[in-house]
């Protein structure tokens, strides 16, 4: 069964502050991901790769089409779901990792990584212990764990964000440039984790510019330029 199915997803932005300028971005996006499969979206910058991930996550609203997310419990059409259904799917089944960490003032790196697990109902001690293992795996020095990451370097923040996004083991995972500013060691960690997740049956949709990483994780490449509008 497909874990994720997009059919005829269309997205146009209307910029009211620019006199109602209409920017068609994507038309009739259709593809599906099985459990255990990694789809890599390809195409030049501006083709709409990140927009597709945001549409799947429910961060952007689509104009038409369907985005079916299937988990053990149910199938939800993100295109039409109510806000609390989308929140529930995100918490249970849908992970989304970008290269940017949205740091919250005063919250430590360890708590930021553990938070999604706690929201899922994992006991705080257990969640914190697993968060610590993940930070260690990403080579984040232990002296940083108790600090809020607002002042960390770009690469450190990205690793905190990866640890947070990859820890909950969601059955569907959206990765937007997960290796963008990582060194070779940490790129290898991401590749290892993605492979583990695939073995455990996760369906993954990723945007990866690094060809080496892409070759190591991709099962199918979907060329987004097919869906780009003739704008």
């Amino acid at each position: 069964m497909n874990a994720l199915t997009l059919s005829d997803v269309t997205k146009t932005f209307t910029m009211h502050l620019q006199g109602g300028l209409r920017l068609p971005v994507l038309r009739n996006v259709s593809f599906a991901a099985h459990a255990g499969q990694c789809i890599v979206l390809t195409g030049p910058s501006g083709a709409g790769k990140s927009s597709i991930l945001k549409l799947i996550y429910g961060n952007y609203r689509c104009d038409s089409g369907h985005i079916l997310v299937s988990s053990a419990d149910d199938t939800v059409d993100i295109a039409t779901a109510a806000p609390r259904e989308i929140l529930s799917v995100r918490q249970r089944a849908l992970g989304y990792v970008t290269q940017f960490l949205r740091a919250v003032p005063r919250v430590s790196a360890l708590d930021i990584v553990a938070e999604p697990l706690i929201m899922k109902g994992v006991a705080r001690d257990d969640a914190t212990a697993r968060a610590a293992m993940m930070l260690r795996r990403f080579n984040v020095p232990e002296r940083l764990w108790s600090l809020p990451p607002a002042t960390f370097s770009g690469g450190e923040q990205q690793r905190i964000n990866l640890a947070r996004g990859l820890l909950p083991e969601h059955p569907i995972l959206l990765l937007d440039e997960p290796t963008a500013s990582l060194d070779a060691d940490n790129r290898a960690v991401v590749v290892d984790i993605v492979r583990e997740r695939k073995q455990h049956g996760a369906a993954i949709v990723a945007i990866v510019h690094d060809e080496n990483v892409r070759e190591q994780i991709a099962d199918i490449a979907v060329d987004v330029t097919h869906f780009a509008t003739a704008a």
Binding site: K54, G58, N59, Y60, R61, P83, I86, L87
Partner: peptide
């Protein structure tokens, strides 16, 4: 009205 991140990002 809608999800906070949805309304603010789109």
């Amino acid at each position: 009205a809608g999800l906070t991140d949805q309304v603010l990002d789109d």
